[in-house]
Design a binder for these strands. Structure first.
Length: 420
RNA sequence: GAGCUCGUAGCUCAGUCGGUUAGAGCGCCAGGUUGUGGCCCUGGAGGCCGUGGGUUCAAUUCCCAUCGGGCUCCCCA
């Protein structure tokens, strides 16, 4: 075999037959559960305006500052979407979905793009599913969102994970907290890691997320945001936690959980798994009460999450969870000679019309090779057609699992297979 | 973007302390069984040893670069 001249770009992968079945099974579960939760699917373009993502996700985030695929054509600035919250909000505003009344419960599945160095559980094109609940600031919305997320993993059978929850505060609480954090960290600023020092002014909360060894002892004793929440936000958070308890969803309160997008307010959560290696986040999300307005829409509270589908599939692999059955076909038509081959070709459609999946040899091979192919294709039955069968109008139906054969007319075969 | 590591057949991997035709298992094709798969036996196809350059009489083997994978950091799904 010649070496492939053209290959996928780095960090972009083909999903091949054998693998695709798992994806379809996963997607089916997501669609089914979304229907049970009364979420409606939304599909938005792969390309968005660069300005939307910069404003929406945040100029200073890693995603925008170094992970974006962007290009210009004419006067338009295009970006391959790195996440879907900002685009969904854009769509909500553009099409005035608030006018549909009530809160909007939306979900999505699709590819995202980030120009990162790939490693296990991290690709440049990857897939997420997620939910956005627009228009409600009720803690019930936060918790339904989390409940949907947990339900997907529960249905698949992934139970080895940790749900971390925090409140990152509203703007008022957050300013008070940032001041307190700077007061606390300031005296030791020179002892912090380089990255943390850089974040001190603009985004001191991200220091809490640091994994640098030298930062750890300071983080351990840092003030906790919860002590700075104003009454309303504290009450919201208490309700979220209480509802989670009511639903028996176990969680860890992590006062130092901070998330990568600028738009989060109040509730923030993250689902991590020890089965994933260093890229251990299965899913993450939170509330973004200011984003709709930021993008030019009416002041609208909202909450959502996004989950990585590749990571979910990696976890399945680690846990030996089989999402899809091996493929099979109901019946394989084995034909001997031109007459029989023509008969097979013209009778395939009749079987298919009766709801039977069927195929035949396309390479004019020997009977043995055809039987071998039927076996490889995991056929339940083979129908063997030769000159004897054509003359008698009775065909050999072989049960490939039991290795038993009987002689039947074509109609009898269809009847038998269709009524299985 | 930084560090480490790996890159031999479709797949999983041996091997060459630089030296004539580069191996195994699985898979693929064919035959053993001219009308019967899965097991077994026999044979066959398939590799410029990731790519480019350098050192050398000679490179798949050593050196450099590059591309791609894995791990870590950063960050996130």
């Amino acid at each position: 075999m010649a070496k492939a001249k053209y290959t996928t770009h780095i960090g972009m992968v083909d999903i091949l037959p054998g693998e695709v079945e798992k994806w379809r099974a996963l997607e089916a579960i997501i669609h089914e559960e979304a229907a049970k939760f009364n979420f409606e699917e939304i599909r938005t373009p792969i390309l968005e305006q660069t300005e939307l993502i910069v404003r929406g996700v945040g100029q200073l985030t890693d995603i925008v500052s170094k992970e974006i695929f962007a290009f210009k054509k004419g006067d338009s600035h295009y970006v391959l979407r790195p996440e879907l919250t900002a685009p969904v909000v854009r769509s909500y505003v553009q099409h005035h979905l608030n006018q549909r009344g009530g809160s909007q419960k939306l979900y999505y599945i699709g590819p995202m793009f980030r120009a990162e160095k790939p490693q296990k559980g991290r690709q440049r094109q990857f897939h997420q599913f997620g939910v956005e609940i627009m228009g409600s600031n009720d803690p019930v919305a936060d918790v339904e969102c989390i409940a949907f997320m947990m339900r997907i993993y529960q249905r698949i059978g992934i139970e080895n994970f940790e749900l971390k929850v925090n409140s990152v505060g509203d703007p008022e609480s957050r300013e008070a907290y940032k001041t307190a954090l700077r007061d606390y960290l300031g005296p030791n600023l020179d002892k912090l890691s380089e990255v943390s020092q850089k974040r001190f002014e603009k985004n001191p909360m991200r220091i809490l997320d640091s994994k640098e060894a030298e930062d750890q002892e300071f983080i351990k004793q840092a003030p906790v945001i919860r002590d700075f929440l104003n009454e309303e936000t504290e009450e919201h958070f208490e309700n979220v936690l209480a509802y989670l308890d009511d639903l028996s969803i176990s969680y860890t309160e992590d006062p130092y959980l901070v998330r990568g997008m600028d738009y989060y307010t109040r509730t923030a959560f993250e689902l991590t798994s020890p089965d994933l290696g260093s890229q251990d986040a299965l899913a993450g999300g939170g509330r973004y009460d200011l984003l709709v307005e930021e993008i030019g829409g009416p002041s609208t509270p909202a909450v959502g999450f996004a989950a990585g589908m590749e990571r979910l599939l990696i976890a399945c692999e680690e846990l030996d969870i089989k999402l899809a059955e091996p493929k099979s076909v109901d019946v394989y038509f084995v034909s001997l000679g031109d007459e029989a081959r023509k008969w097979a070709l013209t009778h395939l459609p009749k079987a298919r019309e009766a709801g039977i999946s069927t195929t035949m040899d396309y390479m004019g091979r020997s009977m043995k090779a055809q039987m071998k192919d039927a076996n490889r294709e995991n056929a339940d039955y083979a129908v063997i057609v030769g000159s004897n069968e054509l003359a008698e109008g009775k065909f050999t139906l072989r049960n490939m699992r039991e290795s038993e054969e009987m002689s039947l007319s074509f109609d009898q075969i269809i009847e038998k297979l269709a009524s299985r």
